[in-house]
Amino acid sequence: LRTVEMKKGPTDSLGISIAGGVGSPLGDVPIFIAMMHPTGVAAQTQKLRVGDRIVTICGTSTEGMTHTQAVNLLKNASGSIEMQV
């Protein structure tokens, strides 16, 4: 596991798309980074990659989380965001 910290302002975009989660079209698979926009906050860290499994978001485990719950957690996060992948 590695921990990645990002700074995100209220109008900034992380610039990632995620897939997976409980009840997702892919089945109940762990949440992972499906796409990254090169100008997004996540890409700027140069520490995240497409395919990385997201284990925690700001200390909250993604295990058993639906896709929608994970998306909302990421969208609503601002300031210092910590992810374990």
Rank of each mutant, 00 (worst) to 15 (best):
Met65Thr: 03
Ile18Trp: 04
Met36Glu: 05
Gly23Val: 01
Val22Lys: 13
Thr56Glu: 09
Val85Tyr: 00
Met35His: 15
Arg2Met: 13
Gly27Tyr: 00
Gln46Ser: 11
Met36Trp: 01
Gly51Asp: 05
Pro38Gly: 06
Asp52Asn: 00
His67Pro: 09
Gln46Lys: 15
Pro10Leu: 09
Leu73Cys: 09
Glu63Asn: 09
Ser61Thr: 10
Thr45Leu: 04
Val55Cys: 10
Met35Arg: 15
Asn72Pro: 03
Leu48Gln: 02
Val55His: 11
Gly40Ala: 04
Thr3Tyr: 09
Gly23Arg: 05
Met6Asn: 00
Met6Thr: 03
Thr45Pro: 04
Ser13His: 15
Gly15Tyr: 01
Thr68Pro: 09
Ile54Gly: 02
His37Leu: 09
Leu14Val: 08
Val41Pro: 07
Ser13Met: 14
Pro10Thr: 10
Ala70Gln: 06
Lys47Pro: 03
Leu74Phe: 09
Val50Glu: 09
Pro30Asn: 05
Ser78Met: 08
Thr68Phe: 10
Asp12Phe: 02
Gly59Thr: 00
Gly64Glu: 07
Thr66Ser: 13
Pro25Phe: 06
Thr39Asp: 15
Leu73Thr: 08
Ser17Cys: 14
Ala70Phe: 05
Ala19Gly: 15
Gly51Met: 04
Gly40Arg: 02
Ile31Arg: 05
Thr56Tyr: 06
Arg2Thr: 12
Ile16Gln: 02
Lys47Phe: 05
Asp12Ala: 09
Gly40Gln: 00
Gly9Ala: 09
Val55Arg: 05
Gln44Leu: 11
Met36Asp: 02
Met83Gly: 03
Ile31Ser: 02
Thr45Ile: 00
Pro25Trp: 04
Gly40Thr: 05
Pro38Gln: 08
Ala19His: 05
Gly64Pro: 01
Ser13Thr: 15
Ile57Met: 08
Ile18Leu: 14
Lys8Val: 15
Met35Leu: 10
Lys47Ser: 11
Leu48Asp: 08
Ala34Gln: 13
Gly15Asn: 03
Val50Tyr: 04
Thr11Asn: 15
Gly20Leu: 02
Ala43Trp: 09
Gly40Phe: 07
Met35Asp: 15
Gly51Phe: 04
Ala34Phe: 06
Ser17Gly: 13
Val22Trp: 11
Ile57Trp: 08
Gly23Lys: 02
His37Lys: 13
Gln84Arg: 07
Asp52Trp: 00
Val55Trp: 05
Val29Gln: 11
His37Arg: 09
Val4Ala: 08
Gly59Asp: 05
Asp12His: 10
Val71Ser: 14
Gly9Asn: 09
Ile16Leu: 14
Thr3Phe: 11
Ala34Glu: 15
Met36Lys: 04
Ile16Lys: 05
Gly9Lys: 10
Pro25Leu: 09
Arg2Ile: 15
Ile81Gln: 06
Ser61Cys: 09
Thr56Ile: 00
Ile81Phe: 13
Val29Ala: 08
Pro38Ile: 00
Pro30His: 01
Val41Glu: 07
Gly21Phe: 00
Cys58Lys: 08
Leu48Ile: 08
Thr45Lys: 04
Pro25Gly: 08
Val71Met: 14
Gln69Lys: 09
Ile31Glu: 04
Ile33Gln: 05
Gly15Trp: 04
Gln44Glu: 08
Gly20Val: 00
Gly21Lys: 02
Gly15Gln: 00
Pro10Glu: 12
Gln44His: 08
Gln69Asn: 09
Ser17Lys: 15
Cys58Glu: 11
Ser80Trp: 11
Gln46Thr: 12
Met83Tyr: 02
Val50Pro: 08
Ser24Leu: 01
Met36Leu: 15
Val22Met: 13
Ser80Phe: 09
Ile54Asp: 01
Lys8Thr: 10
Gly59Ala: 02
Met35Gln: 15
Arg2Ser: 09
Leu48Pro: 03
Arg2Gln: 13
Ala70Tyr: 06
Met36Val: 12
Pro30Thr: 01
Ile57His: 03
Phe32Ile: 06
Ser24Ile: 00
His67Cys: 15
His67Thr: 14
Pro10Cys: 09
Gly79Met: 01
Glu5Val: 15
Ser17Leu: 12
Gly15Cys: 01
Ser80Gln: 12
Thr68Lys: 14
Ala34Asn: 11
Gln69Ile: 05
Leu26Lys: 10
Val55Glu: 12
Thr68His: 12
Pro30Ala: 05
Cys58Pro: 05
Pro10Met: 10
Ser78Glu: 14
Ala43Ser: 09
Asn72Gln: 13
Asp28Cys: 04
Leu1Ile: 15
Gly9Thr: 09
Ile33Glu: 04
Leu1Tyr: 13
Gly27Asn: 06
Gly51Arg: 04
Gly23Met: 01
Lys8Cys: 14
Phe32Pro: 06
Leu74Glu: 00
Ile33Asp: 05
Arg49Gln: 14
Pro38Leu: 01
Met65Tyr: 01
Gln69Gly: 08
Val29Arg: 09
Gly40Leu: 03
Asn76Asp: 12
Gly23Trp: 03
Gln44Tyr: 05
Ser17Trp: 10
Thr68Ala: 14
Gly64Asn: 13
Ser78His: 12
Leu26Asp: 14
Val55Phe: 08
Lys47Gly: 12
Val22Ile: 14
Thr68Ile: 09
Thr66Ala: 07
Asp52Tyr: 04
Met65Glu: 01
Thr62Ile: 06
Lys8Glu: 06
Gln84Glu: 13
Gln46Ala: 11
Ser24Glu: 02
